[in-house]
């Protein structure tokens, strides 16, 4: 009886802790939104963050996008050629990249490259007591530290996802047309006939905007909430990557069902 009660107590306390955490995360997000208007006129802060969040991620996005597109081209061709449908390769590569792989992989790579760095940076600011020091000097850390990073992630993600998809399609073109011999004209015309600007490209952009908000939110929140010790920052950085991956994959399913599933 006592064992059973303690079992329920454990579940209850876990649930309570997660709910409290979720609540704090939302209060944090609202405070971030509240700090956004103060960025008007403080563009230097945002540009500095765009550099460390966006520009630094371009390299990994470019290489991944190109290779993912090349693999899609090769694998798609192997399957499609059995049905004599290799002309549809362009359509297959473009749709998989624009609808799913571009936004999702960009968000996960973003979490690994930029999100973890954001968490570690803010967490270390906490360890070295820079955040309390700011508050003592009547500088709001939300306006100075959190909001510029948040908006930089929000701007970067759709641009990075677009680069990923564009380079992926070029990668698919290099392999499909250059290597295995799909017809050049058929590759592009099949793609243009089947890819809709609003249904496919704009929905992909909406996805990457949502993922941008979520990934940056998790990254800055984990940093802000990190236990101010060396170990605490390490754990928070790991949590950023893992939670972002879960959140992005889960949200992607919901968004796909809403956009393309006919729900």
């Amino acid at each position: 009886m006592a064992a059973m009660l303690s079992f329920f107590q454990q579940i209850g306390s876990k649930a309570f802790l997660s709910l409290a955490r979720l609540g704090r995360a939302h209060i944090f997000l609202l405070r971030t939104f509240g700090a956004l208007p103060s960025l008007w006129g403080e563009f230097r802060l945002v540009i500095a963050q765009l550099f460390s969040v966006g520009v630094a991620t371009v390299q990994i996005i470019a290489i991944s996008g190109l290779t993912v597109g090349m693999v899609l081209g090769l694998q798609g061709y192997t399957t499609l050629v059995d049905f004599g449908a290799e002309d549809s390769l362009g359509q297959m590569v473009a749709l998989s990249l624009l609808r799913e792989l571009g936004p999702v992989l960009t968000a996960i790579l973003f979490a690994g490259r930029a999100g973890s760095a954001l968490t570690a940076e803010i967490g270390l600011m906490k360890v070295t007591e820079q955040l309390p020091a700011m508050e003592i000097m009547a500088v709001d850390p939300f306006k100075r530290v959190i909001a510029p990073r948040f908006i930089a992630g929000f701007i970067s993600m759709p641009l990075l996802a677009a680069m990923f998809s564009a380079l992926g399609i070029i990668g698919g073109y290099i392999v499909g047309v250059g290597l295995v011999g799909v017809d050049d004209g058929a590759f592009w015309s099949q793609m243009q006939a089947k890819v809709d600007f609003y249904d496919d490209i704009m929905n992909g952009v909406i996805k990457s905007v949502v993922f941008g908000v979520v990934a940056t939110w998790i990254a800055v929140y984990e940093g802000y909430e990190a236990t101010p010790t060396t170990e605490g920052v390490a754990k928070a950085t790991t949590r950023t990557v893992v939670h972002t991956a879960f959140a992005v994959l889960g949200l992607d399913f919901i968004l796909t069902a809403l956009m393309f599933g006919g729900l």
Binding site: L50, F51, V55, I155, L159, A162, M163, L167, Q192, V195
Partner: peptide, 25 residues
Amino acid sequence: MEIAVGAFIVFGILALLMLALKVSN
């Protein structure tokens, strides 16, 4: 830094434009 950020934004928008003009209908 400003040049790098500017190039990043320009290339991002160019990628979007390429998707819109070359890939879609």
